[in-house]
Nucleic acid binder design. Structure first.
Lengths: 228, 228
DNA sequence: TCCGTTCTGCGTATTTGATACGCAATAATC
DNA sequence: GATTATTGCGTATCAAATACGCAGAACGGA
């Protein structure tokens, strides 16, 4: 089964046989719970089966295999797009979309490493796309530019969320000093000297909004310079 | 061995014993070659050993385990930051940095799914950070804002590169029609109707530059509004 | 020079996890 | 009730990571 059939093809209701104790939805939800709590690395067919009180092989009646399970988990975790404010202007709408998008990744951090590869969009992901295009179309920009703006905002969110989810950590000060990096990397040293305490969630949240505002400013300037 | 010791601690040169046929660098490079060609999923200790003409267990003399191998592969793939034009203004420098950053991910697509998690920065990644901070400091912005700008640009690049590397694919037109999505998703339908042929590399490249220009415009406006 | 120490390569065995295959029980349908 | 589709899952196989320990190599000191 390819990705499209998996995500978009319905499952024919069985007409005979014993009542199924499991179903695709239950399996997918159990997988998401495990990944939310312990990450994708902790996801195994045995873990999912154990959580459902079933034998490992029972899962294969409902999902073709582990890869397909993860594919289904991704679209399920993305979920439906939020209701976007209507008539309040493209900037408000696009900002709300971006924050909703961000929240998905924050709630399900394991999705981040999955959206970096080539894949077929599922129903939910496609619905988010439609939602973004709808608010963006209020800019009056021509169709190709809508896609450009979508990738810009979407790209920013995906990239920025990495920091919200606990991004890269600078090595400890002794290590830097031992290797003479504080002298060789003066600007970095200055930044580290000022930012002594580790950054809290509030600071990272502020940084997300800073970047989002700059992105939307850039779009706004483009809209002004290219009146439809 | 934690990430910091692994990435930043040197290896003491052995004084005795047989000449080593392998070394950490060879193992890491072989791993990168496999991941470049076939992706991270194809990376196994046996594959790496086979490529080096060694037995699987021989690798464990040079890297503590597979996870640590991947950690080392990431920093090695990132490589040294490019020489950035000096004295041509922050915008030119930051744009060059962003493109260089993008090129790393395009050359080594498997790195994308690795930079989404929490991790210790390696020497190369830290050098890129210093390079970005250096060109950004020419804006005259205060130190905390430098970090904000860095996350903005870095976030944009990481997110945008997903599309350059072949991002999500919209399901086929029959599927959309069969499910009535073309009517329910009017804006999307319009976009799809216009963009019939699949997008080429040139188009995606253009989209990357579009987004980058908007990001830098947004930063520029902020710099103008907040003179140092 | 010779021996003990240190170090490398790697064979063997264990463990974990995915999944192919087939059987037995179950519930519609005939 | 007989037939048959369908489910749950026991068993077996295969791939992959890695702990453990041995054999041989090179270096240093007596």
């Amino acid at each position: 089964m390819d990705g499209e059939a998996l995500l978009w093809g319905g499952q024919p209701a069985p007409r005979r046989g014993p009542k199924a104790l499991l179903n695709r939805g239950k399996v997918v939800r159990a997988g998401i719970e495990i990944a939310d709590a312990e990450g994708l690395a902790a996801l195994s067919m045995q873990r999912v089966a154990a959580k459902l009180g079933a034998a490992t092989m029972a899962l294969y009646r409902h999902v073709p295999g582990k890869f397909e399970l993860v594919t289904l988990m991704l679209d399920a975790a993305i979920g439906e797009p939020p209701e976007l404010p209507d008539g309040t202007g493209w900037r408000t709408g696009l900002a709300a979309w971006a924050r909703g998008n961000r929240d998905v990744f924050v709630r399900h951090p394991w999705t981040l490493s999955l959206v970096t590869g080539s894949r077929t969009m599922g129903p939910n992901e496609l619905a988010w796309t439609e939602a973004a295009l709808r608010v963006t179309s209020a800019t009056g920009l021509p169709t190709p530019a809508l896609l450009d703006v979508l990738m810009l905002v979407n790209g920013y969110v995906r990239g920025a969320v990495v920091d919200l989810a606990g991004g890269p950590v600078v090595p400890g000060p002794e290590t830097l000093r031992r290797l003479g990096l504080l002298e060789r990397y003066p600007v970095l040293a200055g930044v580290l000297a000022q930012a002594r305490e580790p950054e809290g969630a509030a600071s990272r949240e502020h940084r997300f909004e800073f970047g989002l505002a700059r992105v939307l400013d850039g779009v706004g300037q483009y809209v002004r310079d290219n009146p439809g």
